[in-house]
Amino acid sequence: MGEPGNPGPSRNYALWLVLGIPAATVVAGIWTIVAISSESGVDADPDPVRRTAQVQVVSIEADQAAATRGLSARVEIDGGGALVRLGQSTGPVAPRLQLIHPIESTRDRQIELAPHPQGWRANEPVAARHGWQLRLVAADGSWRVVGRYHPGDTTVELVPSVAAP
Rank of each mutant, 00 (worst) to 15 (best):
H150E: 11
R148M: 06
G41N: 11
G8I: 08
G147P: 00
M1N: 08
N12D: 15
S40E: 15
A44T: 11
G20A: 03
A35L: 05
A163E: 15
P92M: 02
P7A: 10
T32S: 15
A163N: 11
E39Q: 12
G29N: 13
V156G: 03
Q54F: 13
A163F: 06
A35C: 07
P115L: 07
E76T: 13
A127M: 07
A164Q: 14
G8Y: 14
R135A: 08
L99K: 07
P117R: 04
T25L: 15
T90H: 03
P7R: 10
Q98N: 10
I30E: 00
W16D: 15
T25D: 05
V57M: 00
L17G: 13
G8Q: 08
I100C: 05
I30A: 12
A128R: 02
R121I: 14
L15P: 04
A53P: 04
R50H: 02
A128Q: 03
E104D: 15
P115V: 14
W16A: 13
R109F: 09
D78Q: 14
A73V: 03
S38V: 07
L97E: 10
V57R: 02
G119V: 13
S105H: 15
R11N: 15
R51W: 06
T32Q: 15
L15E: 14
E3V: 06
P9T: 11
N123S: 13
A53V: 14
T25I: 12
A28F: 10
V93L: 14
P115H: 03
T52Y: 06
W120I: 11
P115D: 05
S72N: 09
W16R: 15
L71D: 03
V27M: 07
T106H: 08
G147Y: 03
L136V: 03
G147A: 01
W31F: 12
A67G: 01
Q133N: 14
V162C: 04
P102L: 06
R11M: 14
P7V: 00
I30P: 09
A65N: 06
H130I: 00
L99Y: 05
S40M: 08
E157F: 02
A163Q: 14
I77L: 07
R69M: 15
L71F: 05
H116W: 09
R129V: 11
E157G: 05
R107G: 12
I36Y: 04
P4L: 08
T32P: 10
N12Y: 12
G2R: 08
